[in-house]
């Protein structure tokens, strides 16, 4: 009898403690109401692109300083008009989406010749440490999946034939994770309204013996510059590359036809290309 009574006693005592905790300890932390509200709008995938530890951390930061949203916006929210409206309402500010919306662009045409056998860790980061990669052009895309793996939206695929990363602009939110991941600094965030893209990561420091010229890169022939009738292409003399003024471009495709190396592409059709590319 005594042991049973003892056990029942312990059980009742524990039950009492649990009940007291239940009624005394508040279940909602005070002062976090606004953070919770913002957190509900955020996508909740904790991609880390905003630089904060997860979506809740970002919501906390926004509660303290709502101007942060213009500096490091949550790019996923920017893509979705409904949640954007809710976020604007919650923070009490309006955002200029068209100026902030960006897309990743890989500045490489692919195809660069492989000059030596690489055997080692199969990531771009490891390969780029040895002699800036194993391609003829020391700035060429290596196609070893680093950016593909880091993308939270699965927007990047690798074209295995041309060995180059391809970004699907529909899926891309412009979060910039791939930009920091790429060891060769090939990826750049461009405004979403970009019309013509320049697909070469030309650097003046290029005359490395044996790696002088990539057969698929810009040859600085200036044909695109001459062909443009809308004065939308400016020749950057210092870097010897064309610079496209997107506002003036009428998408006549004359520069694309003029380029013999296919280093210029229609960015508005990039989506179709990304779909055609074998994943």
């Amino acid at each position: 009898m005594i042991p049973i009574g003892l056990l029942i006693g312990i059980g009742l005592a524990c039950g009492l403690i649990i009940y007291l905790v239940y009624i005394k300890v508040p279940r909602k932390v005070k002062g976090l109401e606004k953070t919770e509200e913002i957190n509900a709008i955020l996508p909740g995938i904790n991609c880390g692109a905003c630089g904060r530890p997860g979506c809740f951390g970002y919501a906390q930061a926004l509660t303290q300083d709502s101007n942060l949203v213009t500096k490091t916006p949550c790019t996923i929210v920017l893509q979705d008009p409904e949640s954007l409206e809710r976020l604007e309402k919650a923070l009490g500010i309006t955002l200029d989406v068209s100026a902030m919306s960006k897309k990743a662009l890989v500045h490489c045409n692919g195809n660069s010749e492989v000059i030596c056998n690489y055997s080692g860790v199969e990531t771009c980061k490891a390969a780029a440490q040895l002699l800036s990669g194993y391609k003829k052009c020391p700035y060429a895309c290596l196609g070893l999946d680093d950016c593909m793996e880091v993308c939270p939206q699965d927007a990047i695929s690798i074209d295995r034939e041309k060995n180059v990363a391809i970004v699907d602009p529909e899926k891309c939110t412009g979060c910039g994770l791939c930009v920091t991941e790429c060891p060769l600094n090939l990826i750049e965030l461009v405004p979403a309204g970009t019309k013509i893209a320049f697909l070469c990561n030309y650097k003046p420091l290029r005359d490395i013996p044996g790696r002088e010229k990539c057969d698929f890169g810009c040859t600085h022939c200036r044909k695109c510059f001459k062909s443009c009738e809308d004065e939308a292409i400016v020749w950057n003399k210092e870097k010897a590359i064309p610079e496209i003024i997107q506002e003036k471009c009428t998408l006549c495709h004359k520069c694309i036809e003029a380029c013999e190396q296919n280093t210029l592409a229609d960015f508005t059709k990039a989506k179709i290309e990304a779909e055609l590319a074998p994943a």
Binding site: A128, Q129, L130, L131, R206, D207, I208, P209
Partner: peptide, 9 residues
């Protein structure tokens, strides 16, 4: 000319 130094790439 330019050479790529192997240890530092």
């Amino acid at each position: 000319t330019i050479v790529v130094n192997p240890p530092t790439a």
